[in-house]
C-alpha cells in the first residue's frame, strides 16, 4: 500500500453505456488526495452520467471496480460514504422553502447524530461555507428568492458544509459571474492543494481547466478516452479532436488561453 494510505478514488475497468452513447470503455484512473481532476468532453457525451456513477447515484456495472479510500463503493454505508464524498449536481430541485442557512445546514446531515440536531461546530462550518460562497448576507432569505447564480452558489455551499474528502462537481461554474467563477475554482483548488482534498469536476472551459486542474480525463466519444497531466494533455490538437472545431492557444504568465474558430 501507498505510504500515504489508499488513493481517494481508484477506478478500474469501468465500461459505461447508455442506450444512445458509449461513454467509456475499460476506463481506469486513480485520484490521489490533493489532486484536481477535470473531465472534458462535448455535450451529451456522458460526463454527468459518469460523475453520478462514480458518486454511487447510478449503479455501476459489476465488472468495474470503484474503490473509495480503498474500499468498494457499495461496501460503505450511505452515511459513511456521504461523509467522504459530495456531489454538486447540474440541476437542483427548487424544493420547498427552507431558508438559505437551513439549506446549507443540510450538508451537515451525514455528520449529525440520530436526532439530527446540529451542534456548534456544524453551525460554524455552515457559516464558513456561506461566507466562502458570498451568501452570508442572504442567510435568512428563502431559497426561492435567490437568483440563478446565487442558487448555484447555494448548492456549492451545501457541498462545502458537507466537508468530504472528495468533491464531484458537475460544471461548477455555470450561472456564475466571472468573479465567482474564479473564486469558486480557486477555493476548490486551494482545498485540494492545502487541505489534501480531491476534486473531480466536469468543465467546459479549457482555459479554466488548464489553470485549475492537475489531471484531465477527455471523453472522446465512442467509448474512447484520454487521461493525463493537464499540462501535456490539454493542447490545441487534443481539444480540436475533442470538440471537432479548430482551437488555438497562447501561453501567458498565468497559464494557457484557448480560443476557437
Amino acid at each position: 500500500m501507498d505510504p500515504l494510505g489508499p488513493a481517494v478514488l481508484a477506478i478500474e475497468g469501468l465500461t459505461l453505456d447508455t442506450p444512445t452513447v458509449k461513454i467509456c470503455h475499460q476506463l481506469s484512473f486513480t485520484v490521489s488526495a490533493g489532486e484536481v481532476w477535470g473531465i472534458l468532453g462535448p455535450n451529451g457525451i456522458g460526463k454527468s452520467t459518469l460523475l453520478k456513477t462514480l458518486a454511487g447515484l447510478l449503479p455501476a456495472p459489476p465488472t468495474a471496480s470503484i474503490l473509495l479510500f480503498g474500499q468498494p463503493l457499495d461496501r460503505w454505508s450511505r452515511r459513511q460514504r456521504a461523509r467522504r464524498m459530495a456531489i454538486l449536481l447540474q440541476e437542483n430541485d427548487p424544493g420547498l422553502p427552507l431558508s438559505v442557512l437551513e439549506t446549507v445546514l443540510l450538508g451537515r446531515h451525514p455528520h449529525l447524530g440520530l436526532l439530527g440536531r446540529p451542534r456548534y461546530a456544524d453551525l460554524r462550518r455552515t457559516l464558513d461555507a456561506l461566507r466562502i460562497t458570498g451568501l452570508a448576507v442572504r442567510r435568512n432569505s428563502p431559497t426561492q428568492s435567490l437568483s440563478a447564480g446565487e442558487t448555484r452558489r447555494l448548492a456549492i455551499a451545501l457541498n462545502l458544509a458537507q466537508n468530504p474528502g472528495l468533491f464531484f462537481l458537475d460544471e461548477p461554474t455555470t450561472q456564475l459571474d466571472l468573479r465567482y467563477q474564479r473564486l469558486m475554482l480557486e477555493h476548490f483548488s486551494d482545498a485540494a492543494h492545502r487541505q489534501k482534498k480531491a476534486v473531480i469536476m466536469a468543465l467546459h472551459d479549457p482555459t479554466a481547466a488548464f489553470r485549475f486542474t492537475d489531471q484531465v480525463l477527455l471523453l472522446l466519444g465512442g467509448g474512447r478516452y484520454l487521461v493525463g497531466a493537464t499540462q501535456e494533455t490539454l493542447t490545441p490538437a487534443t481539444l480540436a479532436s475533442l470538440y471537432g472545431t479548430e482551437v488555438v492557444s497562447a501561453d501567458s504568465c498565468r497559464g494557457r488561453v484557448f480560443d476557437f474558430f
Binding site: 427552507l98 446531515h109 451525514p110 449529525l112
Partner: peptide, 17 residues
Amino acid sequence: GQLNVLLRGVDAAQSLG
C-alpha cells in the same frame, strides 16, 4: 432531519446519506 434532506431532491438526499 431526513425529510428535510429529501426536500433537496432524491439524488441530493441520497448523496447526503
